[in-house]
Simulated assay, not measured.
Amino acid sequence: MERFFRSLKTEWMPEHGYTSQGQAEADVLRYLTDYYNHQRPHGYNGYRTPAETESLAG
């Protein structure tokens, strides 16, 4: 979990933060559902995305 939050903070969040809670929630949701699960390769998964890894398992 700590690695996830580090990645979120260093790869995705704006340097000066968000202007509203709604903007932050929408952006973090987009990070999770689009970028983190479908675009960002993970070393633990053999440098595949979580979505790729899951599709191979099923």
Rank of each mutant, 00 (worst) to 15 (best):
M1D: 11
M1A: 12
M1V: 13
M1K: 11
R3L: 05
R3A: 08
R3F: 06
F4Q: 01
F4Y: 14
F4S: 00
F5T: 06
F5V: 08
R6F: 14
R6S: 14
R6L: 15
R6A: 14
S7F: 13
S7C: 15
S7T: 15
L8A: 04
L8H: 03
L8Y: 04
K9E: 14
K9S: 14
K9D: 11
T10W: 10
E11D: 15
E11G: 13
E11N: 14
E11L: 15
W12G: 07
W12P: 03
W12A: 09
M13K: 10
M13V: 15
P14V: 09
P14E: 05
P14I: 06
E15Q: 12
E15R: 12
H16A: 12
Y18A: 03
T19Q: 07
T19N: 04
S20T: 11
S20W: 02
Q21E: 15
Q21A: 12
G22M: 08
G22S: 14
G22Y: 07
G22P: 01
Q23G: 06
Q23Y: 04
Q23A: 15
Q23L: 13
A24F: 05
E25V: 07
E25A: 10
E25K: 09
E25F: 06
E25D: 15
E25T: 11
A26T: 07
A26Y: 04
D27A: 15
D27S: 13
V28H: 00
V28L: 07
V28S: 02
R30N: 13
R30C: 09
R30K: 11
Y31K: 00
Y31A: 00
Y31V: 01
Y31R: 00
L32F: 02
L32I: 12
T33H: 08
T33N: 09
T33I: 03
D34K: 02
D34H: 05
Y35D: 07
Y35G: 02
Y35W: 13
Y36D: 02
Y36A: 04
N37L: 10
N37M: 06
N37C: 10
H38P: 03
H38S: 08
H38W: 06
H38C: 09
Q39I: 04
R40A: 02
P41L: 12
P41F: 12
H42V: 10
G43H: 11
Y44A: 12
N45V: 01
N45W: 01
N45H: 07
N45Y: 07
G46L: 12
Y47I: 00
R48S: 04
T49D: 04
T49Y: 06
P50M: 02
P50N: 08
P50V: 08
P50G: 11
P50R: 07
A51P: 02
A51K: 05
A51Y: 10
A51T: 09
A51R: 08
A51S: 10
A51L: 00
E52Y: 06
E52Q: 15
T53N: 01
T53F: 09
T53A: 10
E54P: 00
E54R: 11
E54H: 07
S55P: 00
S55A: 15
S55Y: 05
S55L: 10
L56E: 13
L56N: 05
A57E: 15
A57H: 14
A57T: 13
G58M: 03
G58K: 11
G58T: 12
